[in-house]
Amino acid sequence: MKAKDFDQQFEDGEDLTPYLDLSQAKRLGSDRQSISIDLPVWLLERINEEANRLGTTAQDVIQTSLAEHLAASEP
């Protein structure tokens, strides 16, 4: 497929996955490193309550909250 046709299909919102080789695809910035953090009990309880409300994990709530906070503080 020519690049202009690919671009046009993308602009039209068409599914382009049949044209992609995803066998070795990686999400940029997805490397992980574990940390240990001490939190006050009340904060961990609130995080767990929020995770239950959202139907997700405490780890997801913490990661999302940190990412949103950092994005909001960017100049």
Score class of each variant (00 low, 15 high):
A51E: 09
Q9F: 13
S34G: 06
D21E: 09
T57I: 07
E49D: 10
A51M: 06
A58H: 00
L39F: 09
P18T: 00
A58T: 01
L20N: 05
Q59L: 04
I47Q: 06
S23R: 08
R32G: 01
E45L: 07
L44I: 09
E49P: 07
R32D: 01
G13C: 14
P40N: 14
I37V: 04
E45W: 02
P18V: 00
F10N: 01
N48S: 07
F10L: 05
H69M: 11
S73R: 13
Q24I: 01
P40A: 13
Q9C: 15
Q9V: 12
F10K: 01
K26V: 09
R32L: 02
T17E: 15
S30M: 00
R32W: 00
E14G: 03
D15H: 09
A71W: 10
L70Q: 06
L66F: 03
R46H: 12
A72R: 08
N48T: 11
L22D: 13
R53G: 05
L70M: 11
I62A: 03
F10R: 02
A58K: 00
L43V: 01
P18W: 00
S30R: 01
W42D: 15
S34Y: 04
T57Y: 02
G55M: 03
Q63Y: 08
I62T: 06
R46M: 13
Q59C: 04
T17H: 14
Q63L: 14
L16P: 07
S65H: 12
F10S: 02
P40C: 13
E14Y: 03
L44G: 06
P18I: 02
D21Y: 03
D38E: 12
I62W: 03
A72I: 13
E50R: 15
T64F: 07
Y19M: 15
I62S: 02
A51V: 04
D31H: 10
Q59Y: 02
S65I: 15
S34I: 10
Q59K: 05
L44D: 11
D21N: 12
R53S: 06
